[in-house]
């Protein structure tokens, strides 16, 4: 186990290094931020001063080495636009995105698993057919449109839920009363008002994932129900609920965990549409703005953080496999 973890961490380091080169070169190729950052009226001298100040006069490989040296010391560069450390900018926005992504994931499991299980166990019932038809809608309706409709119905027409923003926020330490709410990383889910603000964006983000989990679970259940070991479990005289929730359920969790893990990563990284519709001040909004003005340090820092996040999620998923399926032997992987 320990050997496996160390090996995985080494691999992760290599992936991060490779990604940093790809990201850096890719962003370099997009265009010259100077054109956007410096006013067109500036003269040649001002331009050159600015270029030197941003470190853009060095050749690419030197820029990369500077970046790498700083990155190893925890400095991912300063934003050209905000003149603040890129990492700080991103971390400030991170709680908003994380709570939205986890909220959506939570909803998709909470709703998707039971519905999928039901649809798999009774494939021919009217309720199951409704569920499956609904999941097709969940797949195909565009996120932005659903978001707008949610706002129109629940915020504008009914006035039940707030339409935009994060509402009241609080820090974890503040929530348990150790320090004032305003200190530390701010979370919406710790306050009632914040939760009310989260409901619609989380549902909006979850809709696709709910559909995905429903279809995966249903397919898994239908496949597993035909297996001999399920029939054998029934031949042992076990109750239907024991067969379903122990024998079938544990077997269908593996594909569900895989997909939910991958989806969690991409939700955190690319929930920009939902964040824009609900004016949710998360990382997605920040990265789009940064790309528009070619704020290279922020783009690079963001992508590096996302890479590490994916690596972490994949590791957690692999560790979960070994819990779920005894045939997965971690020691033998990666050799």
């Amino acid at each position: 186990m320990a050997v496996y973890l160390v090996r995985r961490l080494m691999q992760a380091l290599l992936v991060v290094l490779a990604m940093s080169i790809i990201v850096f070169v890719g962003v370099y190729a997009i265009g010259d931020p100077v054109e956007i950052l410096i006013s067109p009226d500036a003269d040649q001298l001002e331009r050159e001063r600015a270029i030197r100040a941003l470190g853009l006069d060095l050749p690419l490989w030197q820029q990369y080495l500077v970046f790498l040296t700083n990155a190893l010391q925890g400095d991912l560069g300063r934003s050209f636009v905000f003149n603040e450390p890129a990492l700080k900018l991103i971390l400030q926005r991170m709680p908003a995105t994380l709570e939205l992504a986890f909220g959506a994931m939570f909803l998709s499991i909470l709703i998707g698993l039971p519905l999928g299980l039901y649809a798999g166990l009774r494939p021919n019932s009217a309720a199951s057919k409704t569920i499956m038809a609904g999941s097709i809608l969940g797949f195909s309706l565009p996120t932005f449109w659903v978001g707008l409709m949610l706002i129109m119905v629940f915020a504008v027409q009914l006035g039940w839920l707030p339409s935009t923003g994060r509402g009241e926020t609080c820090s974890v330490l503040g929530f348990i009363g150790l320090q004032p709410c305003s200190a530390g990383l701010q979370w919406s889910w710790l306050t009632g008002d914040g939760l009310a603000h989260m409901v619609m964006p989380a549902i909006n983000l979850a809709l696709f994932k709910i559909s995905l989990v429903i279809r995966l679970t249903r397919a898994g259940v239908r496949e597993t129900m035909l297996m001999d070991y399920v029939k054998f479990a029934r031949a042992k005289g076990l109750s239907a609920s024991r067969v379903t929730f122990v024998h079938v359920f544990k077997n269908i969790l593996i594909p569900v965990v895989t997909v939910v893990g991958l989806e969690l990563g991409s939700t955190i990284a690319f929930s920009v549409v939902t964040e824009s519709v609900f004016a949710w001040p998360g990382m997605g909004k920040l990265i789009i703005d940064s790309i528009n003005v070619l704020d290279r340090p922020v783009i690079v820092a963001y992508l590096m953080i996302i890479v590490m996040m994916f690596i972490t999620i994949n590791l957690v998923v692999d560790l979960t496999y070994s819990l779920l399926d005894p045939r997965v032997r971690l020691e033998n992987k990666g050799t």
Binding site: M227, D228, Y229, F232, A233, V246, H247, K250, N251, L324, D325, P326, R327
Partner: peptide, 8 residues
């Protein structure tokens, strides 16, 4: 095929 692969 008769024994459940994920249960002891």
């Amino acid at each position: 095929m008769t024994l459940n692969p994920v249960l002891r």
